[in-house]
Design a binder for these strands. Sequence first.
DNA 1: GGCCTCCCCCTACGAAAGTCGGGGGTGCAG
DNA 2: CTGCACCCCCGACTTTCGTAGGGGGAGGCC
Lengths: 216, 216
Amino acid sequence: MIRAMIVDDDALVRLGLADLLDGDEAIETVAQASDGLRAVELATAHRIDVALVDVRMPRMDGIAATARLRALPHPPRVITLTTFDLDEYVYDSLTAGADGFLLKDTAPSEILRAVHLVASGSAMLHPAAARRLIDRYHQAGHSRAAAARKKLENLTPREREVLALLSRGETNAEIAGHLGMRESTVKAHVSRILTALEADNRVQAALRARDAGFTG
Amino acid sequence: MIRAMIVDDDALVRLGLADLLDGDEAIETVAQASDGLRAVELATAHRIDVALVDVRMPRMDGIAATARLRALPHPPRVITLTTFDLDEYVYDSLTAGADGFLLKDTAPSEILRAVHLVASGSAMLHPAAARRLIDRYHQAGHSRAAAARKKLENLTPREREVLALLSRGETNAEIAGHLGMRESTVKAHVSRILTALEADNRVQAALRARDAGFTG
DNA sequence: GGCCTCCCCCTACGAAAGTCGGGGGTGCAG
DNA sequence: CTGCACCCCCGACTTTCGTAGGGGGAGGCC
């Protein structure tokens, strides 16, 4: 049984959604709120699995509400709903921690499907939102990533440890302290790392490491 | 009219997909290929709007085929299809330039919908793929971005120029050359940048700048 | 054993980076 | 016009980086 909460300032929308959700045997609407603040209160009191949250609301909008909901001890999954303004809200919504992003013109059956999917750990994006996210993915420089990853492969374990700290902006002396070696040794490691990554200096090495998604 | 191409090494799957697509009045199957190499040939000869591409194929797999197709003069949109191995292929597929990523167990109606959506410039992701992409989005450090951006606001124009080059891994001497100033001046700028960004050294400054999406 | 290879650690020295203090220009409020 | 607040620029000094070169240990292979 999926415990759902509906958050929307429009009473009619709430009614419609509640009707829709309760038509599904596996979903139970356990709470409704007309603004974000109330939603957070309700979520702390009841156990909520999935929250359907409108973006535009008084007092606290859906973005802020999503962030607050996701910060709770047992955070509910969140699907944000909006009428039109896709461009503005997709990234904010995802950054806040939403697992779904739909437009209100989405077919009722799709909304039900989204609730189920999100409850089970998947995600559901409106096609236009998916488009934006993919564009962002390309922007973030993943062409370089693949090339950089290969170079990271043939680093020794010790060199990886050094690179991990280096790519967090630590100095050689700090790295030496953390890894229990002399600074001069760190320098030698860094020097080999630079050769391996074809970087001219530590700044480029740090950037390459990050591009490759290297965390340590 | 959407001109579609089907690429799959399994003749039965091709037959099924062709049947499905031709059931839609707005879609026309103009080409079929059993491997990536042949698909690229066909795409250069015919104008293709949307290609449905299987991932696992002999001679040239779907990933490579996608990259080649997207590199053509009038690249078709690409939807990649796979049976199971989601984890492996999502990122590779998107990096290659796919606009859609579906599993073969997807409902036929969903596949048709995907073709329409992708043809019109949107994207279609399998829920599990959407999940992965969203996770990646969070990984990429968008929480820190907001905080860093504020600090970038109160940099002077000249400092921004210096930071732009600095965050590409250039040395002070190189920056001085590009901006027509003495190295000592660059150092002074960098020093103020470090203070403004609350960074201890240039590596951290470069990373902060990148986190904030600062390009110059 | 002897040999080769790889990894880790180190010293020493020239080359960068970063700090400090200051000159000179502009614009604006008192 | 004087003082103040920026901004851009610079040279001298200290600290940190990066390279070159070498010692020593662990494991594979004859």
